[in-house]
Computed example of a mutant assay.
Amino acid sequence: MRRSSDSIVSNIVEGYGRKRYKADFIKFLVYSLSSCLETKNHLFKISVLYHGTIDNIDELISSYDNLGGKIFNFIVYVEKKLENLI
């Protein structure tokens, strides 16, 4: 779970570093979204398998769900914005 959660921001940063190449930038944003979904899935499994271990786990799951939506919207924004630049 630590690796997938850390990977969210790391992939955004690496993609931004490659922003000159539209396909690479979007690819890394998609990796970031995938890592967000993976982290959310880990939290869900913990909530089912180890119920009551983490008090605010539903809030954490909701936060990652919200973050995933923001990353998705950013992907759409970048696709549209870069279309106009190329």
Results as ranks from 00 to 15, higher is better:
D24C: 04
I46S: 02
D24I: 08
K40A: 01
I57Y: 01
D58A: 04
E59W: 00
R18P: 04
E14A: 05
E83K: 15
S4A: 15
R20G: 15
V48K: 12
V9N: 15
C36E: 04
F44W: 00
S63E: 13
T39N: 00
V13H: 08
I54F: 07
D6A: 13
F28W: 03
H42L: 04
G69L: 12
D58T: 04
V48C: 11
I12L: 15
L82W: 14
D65Y: 03
Y21N: 11
D6Q: 15
I57K: 02
I75M: 04
K22G: 07
V13Y: 14
K70E: 14
E38S: 06
K45M: 06
K19P: 05
N84E: 15
D58S: 09
G17V: 11
S47M: 07
S47C: 06
C36A: 10
E38K: 04
G68S: 04
K40S: 05
K81G: 04
R3A: 13
S32Y: 08
Y77N: 08
D24S: 14
N56T: 11
H42Q: 11
F44H: 07
I86L: 10
S10M: 14
I54Q: 02
A23S: 12
G68W: 11
N11M: 06
H51P: 08
N73F: 06
G17M: 14
I57Q: 05
L49Y: 12
Y50H: 09
G15V: 02
D6Y: 15
I61H: 02
I86Y: 11
Y21P: 02
S34E: 11
D24Y: 15
V78M: 09
F44G: 06
I61W: 00
E83H: 10
F25R: 05
N41G: 03
Y16G: 02
F72C: 03
N11C: 05
Y16E: 14
K19C: 13
I8K: 03
S5G: 06
L33W: 07
M1K: 06
